[in-house]
Design a protein around this nucleic acid. Structure first.
Length: 502
RNA sequence: GCCCCCAUCGUCUAGGGGACUAGGACGUAGCCCUUUCAAGGCUAAGACGGGAGUUCGAAUCUCCCUGGGGGCACCA
């Protein structure tokens, strides 16, 4: 790999909601670039909007990123050479830079009330013209404006966007983008409460913190020229701008929205990391899944660990077109990574999920169960469902399921009974010692092995679908196996003569 | 309405003028393996949105159209 200069990158979410797939992927790309260039990954909280601030979301953010393994080198919790990393604590910095802009003639105080602005916008929308500030305060003589500010008159600060000409900005994935300045508004950069808006705050921070690459969502593309204006007004060197595509609904129609996110949850899927974790997906699977939505390595390789990605990631292979979320693929990747886990690691991760499902776990039993279920799992949540019977005191088969395929109840009872007799005579209880006798019994009864195994499977595991039967029997042990068969025979007898038999 | 971005199988994508009868993966279907379910193996169906150019040659370059997406806040 070619030696790259260390990148300083930042993930800068605003704490207004739960961390979702889109932000996780942005954070991931940041992390990867930082690590492969031996640079720094910075976490910065963009909480300049007090009204939308949600303290829970910051907690959620930290736990989500940590769970994914995307640790940062500088951030609000651990500090760093450019602290503070929370924008609400950097108010004075932004103010001084806003003042510089005013002094240089690139910005001006605006005394228009919000009321007037709303009216203006309404009127413009009615006339079907582009809603924009009419620049009423732009030409107030600076001295007069300064006086009014000094007098404490409520005001915001706006950027004085050039009225003519055009600006060309460069996005790494899309190349040059040229926009006429007259399309641009005189954006507000400092609110009347004195706090800077993203437009100013993020630019100042990115510059001050030495950010070399900015990953952000495509939704910033339209204000991109404006941000470049700010950089250029200050004469700062611009970072590499990389606007990432948005995530689309699984249907491919429309952006992933709050409304759709709710619908997803109803269907048992979620775009929120917190939910995904709860559903039993493992971070390795999630990482592998999201990294491929908008990035690829080549035409074949698709399995990646975080470490693989650090070595192989490249911003050159990023794809600017939007991607639809495919949850089926998450199951696939998660299964892949579950299978890649060591037995002991899987056991460790599985335990809380059994506990949550109400099972108490015997570690030595769990160790024996793991090899049977590892290949069958897509999420950790599935483990209690398919293998809870190993840890349960009783199983509760549906009596009708105990009836062998194409058999009557009587025939099923006989089969179960004969099995009981056979098994109780065995001293060794292992797959190899069980297999031949059971197959011979099936033959003797005129049954296919599958018919007999089916009856025993339901009797012993309580399920029609289970891990391999003989291996399961070994783990469960002779005594419990015989008990469960006895109960199954009783169950079969209880439905004998009832109309509902199949 | 105005501005901007995007465009290969249903989905994620490879492809950056000839190596393309367009490759891989998920999903789907079939077969194999098999005590169920998985996992695995094999096979199949499945795409360059349309139209003009440029070129000996275009999925690849240009333009137009269409479609999709994003933005137009004292939100980020």
């Amino acid at each position: 790999m070619t030696k790259q200069k260390p990148a300083r990158v930042r993930f800068a979410p605003s704490p207004t909601g739960m961390t979702h797939l889109g932000s996780a992927r942005t954070a991931l790309y940041n992390y990867l670039l930082a690590h492969q260039t031996n640079g720094q990954f910075i976490l910065r909280i963009e909480d300049t909007d007090r009204k939308r601030y949600n303290p829970e979301s910051e907690i959620d953010l930290i736990s989500s990123l940590k769970w994914l393994g995307l640790n940062w080198d500088e951030g609000p919790d651990i500090g760093g050479p450019y602290a503070p990393y929370r924008q609400s604590e950097r108010k004075d910095i932004y103010q001084s830079y806003a003042q510089k802009l005013i002094d240089m003639g690139y910005a001006y105080p605006c005394f228009c009330t919000q009321n007037r602005l709303n009216e203006l916008r309404k009127e413009q929308q009615k006339r079907k013209v582009n809603p924009k500030y009419d620049r009423k305060c732009r030409d107030i003589p600076p001295l007069e404006a300064a006086k009014r500010v000094a007098n404490g008159e409520s005001h915001v600060i706006r950027f004085k966007t050039p009225l003519t000409g055009s600006i060309t900005v460069h996005d790494y994935l899309r190349g040059d983008i040229t926009v006429n300045n007259k399309q641009l508004d005189d954006f507000i950069i400092v609110k009347s409460d004195g706090l800077a808006l993203y437009h100013l705050a993020a630019m100042v921070d990115d510059h001050l913190m030495g950010i070399t690459h900015v990953f952000r969502g495509e939704e910033w593309l339209s204000t991109f020229p404006f941000h470049a204006h700010i950089y250029r007004a200050f004469g700062w060197e611009e970072p590499v701008w990389i606007h990432l595509s948005v995530f689309l609904n699984p249907t491919g129609k429309g952006k992933m929205s709050k409304r759709f996110a709710q619908q997803m949850r109803l269907k048992g899927n979620s775009i929120f990391i917190k939910d995904i974790r709860k559903m039993g997906y493992i971070p390795e699977g999630v990482i592998n899944w999201i990294v491929l939505m908008g990035w690829s390595f080549d035409d074949k390789t698709e399995f990646f660990t975080l470490n693989d990605l650090v070595n192989n990631f490249s911003i050159d292979k990023l794809n600017p077109s939007p991607a639809a979320i495919d949850f089926k693929k998450l199951d696939y990747f998660d299964g892949l990574h579950i299978r890649a886990l060591s037995k002991s690691e899987l056991a460790k991760r599985l335990k809380p999920f059994y506990l949550k499902a109400g099972y108490s776990i015997d570690d030595s039993v769990l160790d024996k169960v793991i090899p049977l279920i590892q290949v069958r799992l897509h999420t950790l949540n599935e483990a209690p469902e398919i293998s809870g019977f190993f840890f349960a005191d009783h199983v509760n088969p549906n009596p009708n399921d105990l009836i062998g395929k194409h058999l009557t109840i009587d025939e099923s009872i006989i089969a179960a009974h004969e099995s009981y007799k056979l098994l109780s005579d065995l001293t060794e209880f292992s797959p190899s010692s069980l297999e031949q006798p059971l197959r011979q019994l099936a033959e003797k009864l005129g049954l296919k092995a599958g018919q007999l195994f089916g009856i025993l499977r339901v009797a012993i595991t309580g399920q029609k679908v289970s891990p391999p039967l003989l291996e399961s029997m070994e783990i469960i042990g002779k005594e419990t196996v015989l008990n469960r068969i006895t109960i199954a025979i009783d169950l079969l007898k209880s439905i004998e003569g009832q109309p509902n038999q199949s």
